[in-house]
Simulated assay, not measured.
Amino acid sequence: MSQHVTEITHRLIPSPGGRIHLAEQGAGPLVLLLHGFPESWYSWRHQLPVLAAAGYRAVAIDVRGYGRSSKPLATDAYRMLDLVEDNVAAVHALGEESAVVIGHDWGATIAATSALLRPDVFRAVGLLSVPYTPPGGPRPSDVFARLGGDEEFYVSYFQEPGRAEAEIEPDVRGWLAGFYAALSADTMPAPGAPDPHFVSSGGTLRDRFPLGRLPAWLDDSDLDVYAGEFERTGVTGALNRYRNMDRDWEDLAAFHGAPITQPSLFVGGSMDASTTWLADAIKAYPTTLPGLVSSHVVDGCGHWIQQERPAEISRLLTDWLAALPA
């Protein structure tokens, strides 16, 4: 690593929703990194120094409702339009006019929507694990309600305020360990086992989590970081993202079917349901992501892609960034 790369620095910057916490390393063109559920800026800990050493100003934020960022009380303060405004505010507060935005899980959808709505600010977009699907189609709550038959899809399970909180918050550390394990390639349930994305009648998500073993990418100290943040903040801010999907559908009606035309990247894991369930979305990229530079499915990888395969994902990101127009 370059001797000129400084240590990760942390600070708070103003945003429309209060304050955004960010972790920053390096100098050069700005790359904004957005995490998913249930994580924090820390999910980019492997990529920050690599991007900085490659000559980029790498900034990973705590998304609104997470970590050290503000947590508005109103559920509708977590709609997608607000999160896009946060990202624009972050770019401008950092003294920049434009940035490359890269997201994982929910962060991928937030990154995609940021690029869609503000192409003047976000000149390229990278998506990890969750493919781009243009706004539109049926109302999301109707789609999720039809999944699973007698079982309840996890997104529907998250909708009622307080319900998932009652499962998670009495034992945040144990719940997170099980959730991470359930979606990791080396610890996920075997094929044919009950799907951890669904809840049985009267049950909980945790009923289907693997027990007793952390995935290889997650050690006790890493788990301590994640658990410590959610034990301090609770999980309502994080869950409120799911509780705004119908509002997003309404807010983005003018963009139904719209492609993202900036240069783009997609990387998914071959064992990640987010990638396999949305295989048709990947096939549609010639229409929905006409600026796609490269697309990759990493063999034998689960959902936590930049943590399960840090060196490979860092290489794919730096190669893509180096190929972008200046």
Results as ranks from 00 to 15, higher is better:
Pro189Met: 08
Val91Leu: 04
Thr9His: 14
Thr275Arg: 05
His21Val: 03
Glu312Ala: 11
His4Met: 09
Gln159Cys: 12
Glu85Pro: 00
Thr236Trp: 12
Ala27Pro: 00
Asp219Ala: 13
Gly18Glu: 05
Val155Gln: 14
Tyr132Arg: 00
Phe255Cys: 15
His21Asn: 08
Asp62Pro: 03
Arg11Leu: 15
Tyr180Thr: 03
Leu205Asn: 11
Thr204Trp: 12
Trp106Cys: 07
Arg173Met: 06
Tyr56Gln: 03
Arg309Gly: 01
Thr187Gln: 00
Leu211Cys: 14
Val267Thr: 09
Asp248Ala: 08
Ala145Met: 07
Pro29Met: 09
Ala323Glu: 12
Arg57Ser: 10
Leu278Ser: 15
Thr261Asp: 08
His10Phe: 14
Gly148Tyr: 00
Glu308Ile: 04
Pro325Thr: 02
Ala53Lys: 12
Phe37Ala: 12
Trp249His: 13
Asn240Ala: 10
Ala238Glu: 03
Val59His: 01
Ala164Asn: 12
Thr236Ala: 15
Leu324Trp: 13
Gly257Ser: 08
Ser201His: 13
Arg146Leu: 15
Ala115Trp: 01
Gly203His: 01
Leu265Gln: 01
Val199Leu: 02
Arg139Asp: 02
Gly137Tyr: 00
Ile168Asn: 05
Ala58Gln: 02
Leu30Asn: 05
Gly192Ser: 06
Asp207Val: 12
Ala93Tyr: 06
Leu292His: 05
Leu116Tyr: 00
Asp222Ile: 07
Gln25Trp: 04
Ser43Leu: 03
Pro286Glu: 04
Gly212Leu: 03
Val63His: 02
His303Ser: 02
Met1Phe: 13
Ala284Lys: 04
Gln25His: 03
Leu73Phe: 14
Asp150Gln: 13
Ser294Met: 10
Tyr157Phe: 12
Arg11Met: 08
Gly67Gln: 08
Ala238Val: 07
Phe153Asp: 07
Gly291Met: 09
Arg68Tyr: 15
Phe179Gly: 12
Val130Ser: 00
Arg19His: 15
Ala108Pro: 01
Glu250Arg: 14
His256Asp: 05
Thr109Pro: 11
Asp86Thr: 02
Asp246Pro: 03
Gly192Val: 14
His92Arg: 15
Thr275Pro: 00
Phe255Gly: 06
His303Met: 09
Gly174Tyr: 07
Val235Asn: 06
Trp106Ser: 03
Arg206Ser: 15
Ser69Arg: 04
Val199Asn: 06
Phe198Glu: 00
Pro29Ala: 11
Asp207Cys: 09
Gly67Lys: 09
Val31Ile: 10
Tyr242Asn: 09
